[in-house]
């Protein structure tokens, strides 16, 4: 079958540091897949290779059966692979409206358009409005991003990834640093994703992982330790050793 996202023999060295070891992941379409592991396991490095920020030392990456290993970042996005960052990567001087507007324009093929004014295409406006509304950002849509409270910025970070209408969405610790009161907005946004979107979640919060994921891969020192359903992973003695060992 064609996997939504597949890696084979992914390997990454930083000088003498071996941060990804022969990693082969297979994620089925529509999956809610979580990638977990102790600190320094190399989870974000994997995401960076999947999205093209880093070039793998060896191995291939397939998106819906097509090899994307050598594609630049932006082309992967247009093929349907989108991500959020662990630390917000937003445009401080732009408004949420403009931020979402850019993502939508780019996907609908109007991004390179230099003769038309922003805001003159109804289909783009409608989609911006719909996204802003879904993420409760309508009230602040004309404020500079740098002036927004952190929780709103986090929502915007996820909204902009989803505005790219991904087939596969990579969420890098979406709830990181969000105060308890604002977490539910973010969790609701993640839960409300359409079922046909495949999600790969990287998360430290085990409650979130087990309530969300239908399949879990455990990464230790850059290599895949265990993969299985949440129940299997929870029962696995090796995983327990890694996590209890870390907790102790």
């Amino acid at each position: 079958m064609t996997y939504a996202l597949e890696t084979s023999g992914l390997d990454k060295h930083f000088g003498g540091l071996h941060v990804t070891r022969d990693l082969s992941l297979k994620i089925v379409p529509g999956a809610r897949h979580a990638l977990i592991g102790p600190n320094g396991a190399g989870k974000t490095t994997v995401i960076n290779q999947l999205t093209g920020v880093l070039e793998p030392s060896a191995g291939r990456i397939l998106l819906e059966g097509q090899d994307i290993t050598d594609l630049p970042v932006h082309k992967r996005v247009l093929r349907g692979l989108s991500r959020t960052f662990q630390i917000n990567q937003l445009y401080p001087d732009l408004t949420p409206l403009e931020t979402i507007g850019l993502a939508v324009s780019e996907r609908l093929g109007g991004g390179g358009n230099w003769w038309r004014r922003m805001g003159t295409r109804d289909d783009i406006n409608a989609e911006i409005a719909e996204t802003l509304e879904r993420f409760r950002l309508l009230d602040v849509m004309n404020d500079r991003t740098s002036t927004l409270p952190y929780g709103k910025q986090r929502l915007l970070e996820i909204a902009v990834a989803i505005a790219a209408k991904p087939r596969v969405l990579l969420l890098d610790e979406p709830a990181a640093g969000v105060p308890e009161g604002e977490r539910k907005d973010i969790l609701a946004a993640v839960a409300a994703l359409p079922r046909d979107v495949t999600v790969l979640l990287i998360e430290h919060d085990m409650d979130l992982v087990f309530s969300f994921a239908d399949r879990i891969s455990v990464l230790v020192s850059g290599a895949l330790l265990v993969e299985g359903t949440p129940e299997e992973v929870a029962r696995d003695p090796q995983v327990k050793a890694v996590y209890l060992g870390e907790a102790a």
Binding site: P72, H74, L78, F85, E98
Partner: peptide, 15 residues
């Protein structure tokens, strides 16, 4: 957007 944050710009599909 590129001036503000090239990383994010590329990550929404901007070449």
């Amino acid at each position: 957007a590129i001036k503000n944050n090239p990383l994010r710009a590329a990550a929404v599909g901007i070449p």
